[in-house]
Design a binder for these strands. Sequence first.
DNA 1: CTGTTAGCGCATTCAC
DNA 2: GTGAATGCGCTAACAG
Lengths: 346, 346
Amino acid sequence: MTVTLADVAARAQVSPATVSRVLNGNYPVAAATRERVLRAVDELDYVLNGPASSLAAAASDLVGILVNDIADPFFGIMAGAVQSEIGGPGGRAGGERLAVVCNTGGSPERELTYLTLLQRQRAAAVVITGGAVEDAEHAAALTAKLQRLTDAGTRVVLCGRPPAPETGAVALSFDNRGGGRALTEHLLALGHRRIGYIAGPEERTTTRHRLEGHRDALADTGLPRGAELTLHGPYDRATGHAATVELLRREPALTAIVAANDTVALGACAALREAGRRIPDDVSVAGFDDLPFSVDAVPALTTVRLPLAEAAARAGRIAMGREQEPPGGTATIHGELVVRGSTGKA
Amino acid sequence: MTVTLADVAARAQVSPATVSRVLNGNYPVAAATRERVLRAVDELDYVLNGPASSLAAAASDLVGILVNDIADPFFGIMAGAVQSEIGGPGGRAGGERLAVVCNTGGSPERELTYLTLLQRQRAAAVVITGGAVEDAEHAAALTAKLQRLTDAGTRVVLCGRPPAPETGAVALSFDNRGGGRALTEHLLALGHRRIGYIAGPEERTTTRHRLEGHRDALADTGLPRGAELTLHGPYDRATGHAATVELLRREPALTAIVAANDTVALGACAALREAGRRIPDDVSVAGFDDLPFSVDAVPALTTVRLPLAEAAARAGRIAMGREQEPPGGTATIHGELVVRGSTGKA
DNA sequence: CTGTTAGCGCATTCAC
DNA sequence: GTGAATGCGCTAACAG
């Protein structure tokens, strides 16, 4: 029914092995022979059977990219950057790798499921983006899974999450703590003393680190840590909106709000406008990540720029073995405070 | 080295065939035996070999999702929705399918490459999102490729692009033309007569249809089609910004701008503000898609809401065979005009 | 540089 | 309900 490598071999009057060698290009073949084979491939419209190839070679060209939420530009940008480094030539068969993005939805279970699926496919590499869930049980399961993946020869790179010691996984982590600190220091320097904080979902590394940076800055100034002015929620505008309403209720004299990320900050801005508060005259707002739309917000958002695309591209290159791992298998990537119109004097 | 099905069989004291049957669940097995096998799987930490399984079964659990730009929320939302319908149980082995998102970057070549890669993997289904490039040569190649995929038993669903006749692919297309028309009619009704149009990239179905809708509306009113007030560019804010500057140069008396999508509209708004034009008092602005951030723009964007998530979810279900195909294999999905603060009287 | 041989790990006939 | 045998399509040693 379907055309196989043997059919191509017959048509080109060579052995199957030769066809395989031509296709994989990892072996010397006479130019004339190669020509003949390629012509036969073309004429028969032959497409290599991936599963068979992977089975025989005990390796595949699949590269997995795990993201928490594919609809969030934060992850979209990283996924695109990783993929652009991977899609090119360099694979075993035909010089093409299949870079696949898997959407975990932030669920630890789905994260593990996808890793199993990738393990099952004998993926060449896996890049895991975004923060991790801080649950002891899940952490243990994840560690074990990563261990097994690296043992099986799959290269694992974490991008935007803390290192996973003892697993053989490379980690490029963001300095969320430093960024959070810089943001709050900026607000403190502007004279703000009553600062609301809208944190990300609980039990996640990213959330915790950004929040810790915020509290570190407050502590340095001798201010109370302001736990009562901290709310948690998903990284979406609805969270920013609802949390802002609640913060204003708890502390009407609020002069600044720091949001978990830019999307949340946008929701906060909307709620403030609805409440009749001017930004930044009445209340300053700051985000995190510097997503593309942030510069177009009105007023433009003060935020911490994370080099998402650059970091992800690097993760992709490391996953492909085209760039050396950082010393110790770990590197920290720093953000940059970007001051715009949404923050002003208290 | 790695644990195989035979190892599991030995440990459970059954034949490899029985283990296979337990794992695939497509065959009656005594409860006690199943228990024993599952325990052995657990104890040995066995993971099915995907390539071997796919080779033997001549089918795989891979489902591909093609997107033009994964960093664009338009595609992120659709990809997430498709994936949520696919990730669940229902696959052959272990009840899990691997839904993979492939980023074509809008390049026809990469689109074909990814399709070949998925064909090579014997993908169970493929969902292609977003508009198509309107190039005769590419169209022919694509048609042939889709034909071959469907012939090989891969279900192909197009979501957000026109039908591909004779290929066996199901199409859920957006009524971009109707949406574009509604938007411009809205502006005309507000009294606007000098309307700039910032279109998407040239040679794409989505771009053309939205633009045609715009021109249809103009023609109905007896206005010139305003080709000289139409500019093209990628779906990003930079395009919106640059095009607006140029439009204002060509026609300072402009009172409205229609953008290819919301992201472009945001860039247009930024340029207008920089030029000292108030929105909508001096110039009205409209977008397309109703992406999540559009409601938070200042002023909030008038746009055409496309039910991206719903449509993509439906495409996913059809790809999985969990929902019947629309009659004739084709359905048109209509957008909805959403009037907000960014448009007003001329 | 090319052909021959022997599996890769599993699903699926058939028997029992 | 279960076991034994066969082959999926390809790659990777070996020879030559």
